[in-house]
Write a protein that binds this DNA or RNA. Structure first.
Lengths: 172, 172
DNA sequence: AGTTATTGTTTAAAACTTGAACCAAGCCCG
DNA sequence: CGGGCTTGGTTCAAGTTTTAAACAATAACT
């Protein structure tokens, strides 16, 4: 089948997206790097963890939520552990597993960083969008994320969906 | 002033954006890496260049359009030059300058890669958006990009805007 | 002329990413 | 039970990328 090229509208949207996402990632990285010597990815991992029940999550779970590979996550967590922001614990229910736990120190770090980070996000994004646009943005991004995740699931075969994942997380 | 935290709607939107952008970058990288051994950034640079008049652009110009630093661009172009996709020429009008030129080979490469890439973008993004959403997406992303670029301009002082940039590009 | 700013590259060090290999533990099933 | 297969997570080695600072050459301003 012959290529379905992007329409002019699609092209404009795509270019705008590329510009925005590149600039945004850069801006967030820069801000956090300056404030904490830590790129945005690390902050994001801490943030995901802080939202988990009991501030703890299985590695695979955490990787899935942060949308990164386990290998990458291992690397990140290793560094965050050195920084004292995360501690690893063994999973009692599954002796293979390890659980990343956000330490008090990690939480404190996150709380120290959060205002500046949120301010960046506001200044770059939400201060310039109307409430409708915020809703639209969420819809659009959700659709994209869903499409990509669905696509991947298809590739692995329909049986491979992470349809029920034991968490082993909230037993303290 | 006390932190203006994100509202629940904003949080949802932000989370969706983070997921989408991470997954998207990953998917595009993977696809191009597989098809051409080349991450998305390289493709993007080639694409920008191919749109320039005469397929040529000053390095600084190119960096600005691709939203990356000059240093990063030097690295990228060096590799693309090795691949034969780009050639460097000296700028006659400004002897400091160098001009990146998309070679015929580079154009051919781009044309070979484009269908697969466009297909990826479609499958991940535009196939799942209504025409209205495409318009909204463009608006939103443009607003974000403008906000960040404006912000940076402010930091450098209002006089530092790249208000008129000689291009030295379209002389063959 | 002399200072200051730009262009683009170089350099060296770090940081990151990847994929494959790997081990240990769980699971399945005759 | 005891193989075989799968999963969770890490390790490893290699390469890629990023960054910041320093630099050389030229341009621009005063």
């Amino acid at each position: 089948m012959t290529t379905r090229w992007l329409t002019p509208e699609e092209q404009r949207a795509w270019r705008a997206y590329l510009a925005a996402s590149t600039l945004l990632e850069d801006a967030l990285d820069r801000q956090l790097q300056q404030e904490a010597g830590m790129p945005h990815l690390y902050y994001a991992v801490l943030a995901v963890l802080s939202d988990a029940p009991d501030r703890r999550m299985r590695m695979t779970d955490l990787a899935e939520h942060a949308k990164i590979t386990r290998s990458r996550l291992t690397y990140v967590v290793t560094r965050l552990e050195k920084d004292g922001a995360i501690r690893r614990e063994n999973c009692q229910w599954d002796k293979r597993g390890s659980i990343a736990v956000l330490t008090d120190e990690g939480l404190a770090l996150l709380e120290r960083l959060a205002p500046g980070h949120v301010e960046s996000v506001r200044k770059a994004v939400f201060d310039h969008l109307t409430p409708e646009q915020i809703g639209q943005f969420e819809e659009i991004c959700s659709a994209i994320a869903a499409a990509i995740e669905g696509e991947e699931a298809q590739q692995n075969g329909p049986d491979d969906l992470p349809w029920r994942r034991r968490s082993c997380s909230s037993g303290q």
